[in-house]
Nucleic acid binder design. Structure first.
Length: 413
RNA sequence: GGAGGGAUACCGAAGCGGUCAAACGGGGCAGACUGUAAAUCUGCUGGCUCAUGCCUUCGGAGGUUCGAAUCCUCCUCCCUCCA
């Protein structure tokens, strides 16, 4: 059992809770809940939904996770809802297309991966994980109708992503309209006091309040947190935009991706991406205002991020690796060894690139050579017709980041 | 149930009988530049054991034609309006 929570005074709790919050609605209700919780020594139930279609957490998710941890430190309980049932629908949030549903096995595997990552930040003792199939699956059609009758099409279509899809003539399936209701019902089942989410979740979170009320459950307070832009600096961080820094990214990858964010985002990453204090954030902002080279703050940021998830040593190694590859353009410390078997005595370079996994096709390999993107033992190659003999070993570099020490073997496998 | 519109490469979107491996934009990749995997500029972006060569693509299946992404028939899916 977790130690008996010692709830700090409400004003103090509010101060912690408010930090970084975008929406905190309605605040009076939260105050009341906190007062009651403290008076009765009962932790509040703080809900966060998790979509098991995307098990890979990234830096953007940590903003919400840290806020959850704040709640845990204040003595409250976190309830995670694994949306294994709702994954059959696919959250239409921010998507332009219907999502394909998942299999049971995928959901389970994703949920496990998710838990591994989440407990890097959260306190396991004060976390409850629930699967929403637990209550959604047994609902009969009658129950679903009852739930669906509590909300109107017009209100549902207020959601800007639905509106955009409808306006642009993209299909919206009826079941997608049910998603916010299902998510809302989770809050009924859990009797959630507070639900967190990114600002893009505002609509879904608010629907839950109405549905809870309909079912005679005290409505939850909603707390939304800022979305962090991804490495491209344009879209919110997301796997689908390929602009994400995953918690599980290897150190060099994490470091390099961080170094590629636009300079304007440095301060924001410090504020939201790290477990930083106001003083840290101020130091960064002041430094940048005073004309510090942004590169230095970005390096510190990259270092701090890697250190948080991989430790100090890994962070230093990643920094050194970055120096070597991108600043000095040297070879990396470790180059993967690849052996390629030839059919004959020689093989054209583009073919070898494909066989060694350095290009996705021979034609792609040919293009890379033609564009000067390929070098052999440090020498740039210009002729796509170049033949390599069997028995030879060479370090082949493609672009800035792909390397392999390739051995050509004459033995047909 | 009725009427009309649509399905094109990773995404969006042109093309409407040959000059189409298919405009353009985004994305991606490469090059130059850079503190940077940023920004900017330039190029590339179906496949093939070495090719001013060959092969396969424009929802699916047939057909017309010397020749089809483009025309016809049927099928599948989507959208809009009317009921």
């Amino acid at each position: 059992m977790p130690p008996k929570p010692a709830f700090p005074p409400v004003a103090e709790q509010m101060k912690v809770i408010r930090r970084h919050a975008v929406d905190l609605l309605p605040e009076e209700e939260l105050l009341a809940k906190l007062e009651r919780s403290r008076a009765t020594s009962t932790p509040l139930i703080v809900k966060l939904g998790f979509d098991p279609t995307r098990p890979d957490l990234h830096i953007g998710h940590t903003i919400t996770l840290r806020k959850l941890r704040d709640f845990q430190r204040l003595g409250h309980t976190v309830a995670f809802v694994v949306g294994d049932f709702t994954a059959l629908i696919g959250d239409p949030s921010g998507r332009s297309a219907t999502r394909p549903p998942l299999s049971r096995e995928e959901v389970d595997a994703n949920a496990r991966t998710f838990a591994d990552q989440v407990f890097r930040i959260l306190d396991q003792e004060r976390t409850v994980i629930r699967y929403n199939s637990e209550w959604l699956s047994p609902m009969g059609f009658e129950e679903v109708l009852r739930l669906a009758s509590r909300y109107t099409v017009a209100r549902m279509l207020e959601r800007d992503d639905f509106q955009a899809r409808y306006a642009s003539g993209s299909p919206i399936s009826i079941h997608e309209l049910l998603y916010p209701l299902a998510q809302a019902y989770d809050s009924v089942a859990l009797a959630a006091d507070i639900e967190l989410g990114g600002t893009d979740q505002r609509f879904n979170l608010l629907v839950a309040r109405d549905i809870q009320r309909e079912y005679g459950v005290e409505p939850q307070v909603i707390l939304t947190l800022p979305l962090l832009e991804g490495t491209d600096g344009r879209h919110k961080m997301s796997k689908s935009y390929d602009n994400w820094i995953a918690l599980t990214d290897p150190p060099e990858e994490m470091y390099g991706k961080t170094m590629s964010i636009p300079d304007e985002l440095i301060a924001k990453y410090w504020r939201l991406g790290l477990d930083s204090t106001e003083a840290d954030v101020a130091a960064v902002a002041n430094g940048l205002d005073a004309g510090d080279n942004p590169r230095d703050w970005k390096r510190r940021l990259a270092h701090a991020l890697v250190a948080e998830y991989h430790g100090e040593d890994a962070a230093s190694a990643a920094a050194a690796h970055f120096e070597r590859l991108f600043v000095r353009h040297d070879l990396p410390e470790e180059i993967p060894e690849v052996t390629v078997s030839l059919d004959g005595d020689v093989a054209p370079l583009p073919w070898v690139l494909r066989a060694a996994g350095l290009a996705s096709s021979t034609s792609e390999g040919r293009r890379l050579v033609e564009q000067g993107g390929v070098s052999l033992d440090g020498e740039r190659v210009a002729d796509p017709g170049l033949l390599l003999e069997s028995g030879r070993t060479a370090v082949i570099q493609v672009g800035k980041r792909r390397f392999a020490r390739v051995t050509l073997s004459g033995e047909p496998t």
